[in-house]
Amino acid sequence: MTEWERSSTARVIAPARPRKLAKVPFVELADGRLQGVVSSGSDIARVYVSSVVAGTYAFACSTNNNRPCGGARGSYCNHIRALINEAVLQYGAGRVGRYLRVETVGEDEPSAGGITYAMSSARPSQGDATAAAPVFSRFLRHLGYLELAPVTVPLPEMHWFPPTRAVA
Rank of each mutant, 00 (worst) to 15 (best):
M1L: 10
T2V: 08
E3N: 08
W4M: 09
E5Q: 14
R6W: 01
S7H: 08
S8A: 12
A10Q: 14
V12S: 13
I13R: 13
P15E: 11
A16V: 03
R17D: 02
P18T: 07
K20N: 14
K20E: 12
K20C: 11
L21E: 14
V24G: 03
F26A: 02
F26K: 06
F26P: 01
F26I: 06
E28M: 07
R33F: 02
R33T: 03
R33M: 05
L34R: 04
V38N: 02
V38M: 01
S39P: 01
S39D: 11
D43R: 15
I44D: 14
I44W: 07
I44L: 11
I44Y: 08
A45H: 15
V47G: 01
V47D: 03
V49E: 10
V49I: 13
S51W: 02
C61Q: 04
N64C: 05
N64R: 01
N64W: 05
N66C: 06
R67Q: 10
C69M: 08
G70A: 15
G71I: 12
G71P: 06
A72L: 06
A72Q: 03
R73K: 15
R73M: 13
C77I: 11
N78T: 12
N78R: 05
H79F: 06
H79S: 07
R81H: 02
A82N: 11
A82K: 03
A87C: 02
L89S: 03
Q90A: 13
G92L: 03
A93G: 07
A93F: 02
G94V: 13
R98V: 11
Y99R: 06
Y99A: 10
Y99I: 07
Y99N: 05
R101I: 10
V102T: 14
E103T: 14
V105L: 11
E107C: 00
D108S: 10
E109N: 04
P110N: 07
P110S: 04
S111R: 00
G113S: 08
G114N: 02
G114M: 02
I115R: 00
T116M: 01
A118P: 06
S121H: 12
A122L: 08
A122C: 13
A122M: 13
P124K: 09
P124A: 09
S125M: 10
G127V: 06
G127E: 08
G127W: 11
G127C: 12
D128S: 14
A129F: 04
A129K: 09
T130G: 06
A132V: 02
A133W: 03
S137Q: 13
R138F: 05
F139M: 04
F139R: 04
R141I: 12
R141Y: 12
G144I: 09
G144H: 09
Y145R: 15
Y145K: 15
A149Q: 15
A149H: 11
P150I: 06
V151I: 13
P154V: 06
P154R: 05
L155W: 07
L155G: 00
L155F: 11
L155H: 14
P156W: 02
P156Y: 02
P156M: 03
M158W: 12
H159I: 10
W160Q: 13
W160I: 13
F161I: 15
F161Q: 15
P162C: 00
P163S: 03
P163N: 06
T164H: 07
T164E: 10
R165W: 09
A166W: 08
